[in-house]
Every structure is written in structure tokens, then in C-alpha cells.
């Protein structure tokens, strides 16, 4: 019974959303220039953010899973902080780092790399909140795979870089992929840090969640149609990661 209640708690609101959508106008609502711009921008920035997560997250996960150093737990907690931090706080933190008057923003501005109010800011916000998903997923896989294969590879004459490319990364590929998919999903859903840090302008910084929030004010039907798109993407991603998980356990 409680399990059924829990399932209902998740499913019923989604059904309610589906019931409220104006299906006769569905195509028209999604096809509007602002909807399309938001969708395109979201897909592009999330893809770039996922790449950034891979570039930054893989070394982080490797260090956290493989190296022993004093304060590792502290570093780990800090790295995972965006997972539990309200995204709006992350946005404020980013603002005071990359903003025009921020710690690094001033230098970047002087170098001709403006961050504020650009799509770069969106990617930064998305990367900030999505990074821990990749790190957690990959670190877990690295730990469960263990170091024995790496040790064997070393005794076969493979230097550390070769071990990484030919043994470690192929072994953790399922974890890496599911981490990347989760990061992409998180980036796609990112709202709080983006609205705080990046602003909101059609085609530049107004991602799908921001568009939904805005349309909720003047065109709730469009907001609902777009919400349904995000729900569909979320379901697709959940199924994909579950499949990857199964593959990893075989």
C-alpha cells in the first residue's frame, strides 16, 4: 500500500499535467518561435555542459576514487556540494566568481571574454549543478570495478596513461555514460542558477525551464506543453540510465 501511495504521489501529478495540456494546440504551442528558441538553446547548452562535465569530472572522479591524500573526504564533500546546495545559491556564487565584478569576471572581461548574460553563463550554471552527478556516478563505478585490473595491466608493462585509456576507461564506460546522461538531464532541467546568474533572453540565455516559468505567467498552455516535453525527455533518460545500469551489472 505505501509503495502504491508513493508511486501515485509521483505519477498522479504527471497525469494531471498530461490532462491539462491543450492537445489541439500542442504542435502550435511547441512550434512557436520562443518555444523553439528555448528548446534549441537548452539542447545546445546542455550538450556543451555535459562535455564540460566530462572534461572536469573524469579527472575529479579518478583522483577521488584512486588517490589517497589527507582531506580527501573534505574535498569530496566540497565537490559534491552543488548536489545539495539550492541552485539559486550556486547562481549567486557563480555571479560573484564570473560576474562582471566577480573574482575572475573582471579579468575575463578585460580579456574580452564577457560571461554575464551570454550563453557561456548558461553553460557555466549548468556545469556547476550537473558536475556532481558525473563525479558521483563515475566514482562509484571506479570503486566497484576496483584497481585489480589496473594492477594487472601495469605488470603487463602498461604505463599509467595506457592503463587509463585501454583499461580503466573502457571498464567504467557504463558508469561514464550513465553519469553523462544524468548530467545532461540535470543541465537540461537547470533553472535556479541560470536565472540568478545568466539572465533570461530569448535565444541567448532563456532555456526551456526559464521559458516555462515565464510562459506560466502569460500563456499557461504553452508552459504545460513545454513541461510535457521535459517530462518526456526525463522519462527517456531514466529508461536509458536503467538500461546502462543493467548492462554494467551483467
Amino acid at each position: 500500500m505505501p509503495a502504491a501511495a508513493g508511486a501515485a504521489f509521483v505519477v498522479v501529478p504527471l497525469l494531471a499535467l498530461g490532462l491539462r495540456v491543450d492537445w489541439s494546440r500542442f504542435g502550435e504551442l511547441l512550434g512557436s518561435p520562443s518555444s523553439l528558441a528555448a528548446l534549441t538553446l537548452s539542447l545546445q547548452t546542455s550538450a556543451v555542459a555535459t562535455l564540460a562535465c566530462l572534461v572536469l569530472g573524469v579527472p575529479m572522479a579518478l583522483v577521488l576514487a584512486r588517490r589517497r591524500f589527507p582531506g580527501r573526504q573534505v574535498v569530496r564533500s566540497l565537490a559534491l556540494l552543488p548536489l545539495v546546495l539550492p541552485p539559486v545559491v550556486g547562481g549567486i556564487a557563480l555571479l560573484y566568481t564570473f560576474g562582471r565584478r566577480g573574482l575572475l569576471g573582471q579579468t575575463l572581461d578585460v580579456l574580452g571574454v564577457p560571461v554575464a548574460f551570454t550563453s557561456v553563463a548558461v553553460v557555466l550554471a549548468q556545469t556547476f549543478v550537473a558536475l556532481p552527478f558525473l563525479v558521483v556516478s563515475l566514482e562509484g563505478t571506479l570503486r566497484s570495478v576496483g584497481q585489480r585490473y589496473e594492477a594487472v595491466a601495469a605488470t603487463l608493462g602498461a604505463p599509467p596513461s595506457t592503463v587509463l585509456c585501454r583499461v580503466t576507461l573502457p571498464l567504467v564506460l557504463p558508469g561514464l555514460l550513465s553519469g553523462a546522461v544524468l548530467s545532461f538531464a540535470r543541465a537540461l532541467g537547470e533553472f535556479g542558477a541560470t536565472i540568478t546568474f545568466a539572465g533570461s533572453l530569448q535565444g541567448v540565455t532563456r532555456t526551456l525551464p526559464l521559458e516555462i516559468y515565464l510562459r506560466q505567467v502569460d500563456d499557461p498552455d504553452a508552459a504545460m506543453a513545454l513541461s510535457l516535453v521535459l517530462v518526456a525527455v526525463a522519462i527517456g533518460i531514466t529508461v536509458a540510465t536503467a538500461r546502462l545500469g543493467e548492462r554494467a551489472h551483467r
Partner: peptide, 20 residues
């Protein structure tokens, strides 16, 4: 000398063949 430069191979209890 790190393991990969020793010219010493190890066969353990478990075969530990690379699954991929």
C-alpha cells in the same frame, strides 16, 4: 621502478581478464 617498468608479470588466483 614503477610496476610497468619492471618486466615482472603476475598471474593471480583470479584470472582478471579484461572483460572488455
Amino acid at each position: 621502478l614503477p610496476p610497468h617498468r619492471r618486466g615482472i608479470a603476475l598471474l593471480a588466483q583470479d584470472p582478471l581478464l579484461f572483460p572488455h
